[in-house]
Simulated scan of single mutants.
Amino acid sequence: MSRLAAGVVLVTAYDPDPGLDGEDVGMTATAFLSVSLDPPLAMVSVRNGSRMDELLTEREEWAASVLSESQRHIAGRFAMKGRISDRLLFDDIPYTRGAVTGCALVGGALATVECRTEQRVVAGDHTLVIGRVLSAAQPSSDGSPLVYFRGRYRTLG
């Protein structure tokens, strides 16, 4: 499967529990796709038992930001194993809050979607989270997509 090129997104959700202020949670994903246009559905695959998996069992709202090639550092940061707290990972990343879900949307992303989970399908060591797209935007029309191929982030061309 390493020979299948995939786009790279940052999936985000908001966890209201940590501390009084809550916390944004993020996860780099390469298994993200459009499922249906009518109704508009998108899907992300999350590793079972991960923080994002646990959060999305409690929270229905989540978002995805399609990363550009200039945002490789964001993808790498949120893909690290044994990483620091998510609060620190978001510190120097420009983002806005989605108007519908309140989830973090990466500034300069090629596209963003806000979703509400409609279905969860356990598939081996991952869960496919299918969400209804509540809003979609193109914050930046400049740049090329960040792509994951043969175990590395790459650019088109």
Rank of each mutant, 00 (worst) to 15 (best):
I84K: 13
Q138F: 14
I74D: 02
R152L: 12
E23Y: 06
V121E: 03
G49F: 01
A42I: 03
S50N: 11
A137F: 08
N48S: 11
R59W: 04
L20Y: 05
D15H: 07
A42K: 00
D53M: 01
T57I: 06
D53F: 08
G22Q: 04
D86R: 01
F149C: 12
D24I: 00
V129M: 11
E69V: 07
P40A: 14
S135A: 15
Y148K: 11
Q71N: 01
F78Q: 00
F149G: 04
P16M: 05
A111Y: 00
V147Q: 03
R97G: 07
P145A: 10
A42L: 09
R116S: 13
G157F: 00
V11L: 15
I84D: 13
G124W: 11
V100S: 04
V8L: 01
S85R: 13
P16G: 08
G98F: 01
P40R: 11
L128W: 03
G151H: 05
M1W: 07
C115A: 02
M27A: 14
P145C: 05
F90R: 02
A13Q: 00
A5W: 00
F90T: 02
R150P: 01
R120T: 05
R132H: 11
P18F: 03
S2Y: 07
G49W: 03
E114N: 09
S85G: 15
S34N: 00
V46K: 12
Q138D: 03
V25P: 08
P39Y: 11
A42N: 08
M52C: 01
M52Y: 03
A63Y: 08
E61L: 14
V25K: 09
S135W: 14
G143C: 01
R152A: 14
D24M: 11
A31N: 10
S2E: 10
R87E: 15
S34C: 10
V133N: 13
L37M: 13
A111I: 09
G26M: 10
V44L: 14
I74L: 09
T12I: 01
A123S: 08
E58W: 10
L41P: 08
E23R: 08
A136H: 12
T30D: 00
T57Y: 04
Y153T: 01
P16R: 07
S144R: 12
A75D: 04
V25M: 06
L56V: 06
L89E: 09
P94M: 03
T28M: 06
G49Q: 06
L89K: 15
M43I: 02
E23A: 10
Q71K: 02
G82K: 07
P145G: 04
V25E: 05
G26S: 10
V129L: 05
V129T: 02
S50P: 12
V122E: 11
V9S: 09
E61S: 14
V113G: 08
H73A: 12
V113W: 08
V8W: 04
G124Y: 08
T117L: 15
R150Q: 12
P18H: 06
L4S: 11
F90M: 02
